[in-house]
């Protein structure tokens, strides 16, 4: 494949990014690069500058320092965190996928089928449920075989199984297209499983590397220690377990707390 020759060349390279907003430093000296075939995840607490970093990488934010370089002819598929379509704008799923370039009927149908929303081409975008809307965004991002897929909190609103499926799907996409995938997420555990590399961001890069190494790093634990324990607790909880069948000690405690 022609891509293998350029595999070592990063798709996007950012050096020393500085972004200030309203006098606050949102990003400080952030270096980042992502290559084809790599899944890179950015984790960080709320307000740590994750979304700003993504926006800086696509050129939507004015930089106060540093430089972003895109590989020549880089095609980016972007899946934003939220997208508001004004109710006055009539837009079918098909028209959205055909924006700005026209695709033939078969391509549209195939893209929707792969995204798991077949037969929705003529539905209005505003009539889609939250999950379907997210899938339509994904279908459009993948339509022109991007070199780099960027997802901002794309698993928001999915349940635990949905999230796990979603990340399995990402690995499939990466293997099929040999594209780079850059994502921002809160879902620490699933993210940790799917990513090749994790960057832990809190305005600056606290630590980065292989998921396991990062989750053991003291900087990461300082940021996420408590949150992680909570997340793990949710994971260990058996959803099919009916609370009244057996009087588990921890549940009894919770109930006692509620009563008091």
């Amino acid at each position: 494949m022609p891509m293998t020759a350029t595999k070592q060349e990063p798709l996007i390279e950012a050096k020393g990014l500085d972004v200030r907003m309203g006098g606050q430093r949102v990003l400080e000296h952030v270096d980042l690069s992502i290559s084809a075939g790599e899944i890179l995840t950015i984790v960080g607490p709320n307000g740590s500058g994750k979304s700003t970093l993504l926006r800086a990488l696509i050129g939507a934010v004015r930089l106060d320092g540093g430089k972003v370089t895109h590989a020549e002819g880089l095609r980016i598929g972007y899946v934003p965190q939220r997208l508001h379509i004004d109710p006055t704008l009539p837009l079918t799923v098909r028209r959205f996928l055909n924006l700005p370039r026209q695709h033939n009927k078969a391509q549209i149908e195939q893209a929707l089928e792969r995204a798991g929303i077949p037969n929705r081409a003529d539905a209005a975008m505003t009539a889609l449920s939250g999950g379907q809307f997210q899938r339509a965004l994904m279908a459009r991002a993948l339509l022109d075989q991007p070199d780099l897929l960027i997802l901002d909190e794309a698993s928001q609103g999915l349940d635990q199984t949905g999230t796990a499926d979603f990340y399995r799907q990402l690995e499939q996409i990466r293997d099929e297209l040999n594209c780079g995938i850059l994502l921002v997420s809160h879902d620490l555990h699933v993210v940790m499983r799917a990513a090749d590399r994790v960057i832990c961001l809190n305005h600056h890069i606290c630590c980065q590397g292989h998921p396991e190494a990062v989750s053991n790093a003291p900087e990461y634990r300082a940021l996420f220690g408590r949150y992680e324990e909570e997340a793990l607790a949710i994971f260990r909880h058996d959803p099919h377990h009916h609370p009244h069948d057996h009087a588990h000690a921890p549940e009894a405690e919770v109930e006692a707390d509620d009563a008091g």
């Binding site: 926006r55 696509i58 934003p80």
Partner: peptide
Amino acid sequence: WQALLLETISDELAHAE
């Protein structure tokens, strides 16, 4: 037309593309 439409829907999508 096409670019304005995309920008109306999302600034970020437009920048990314």
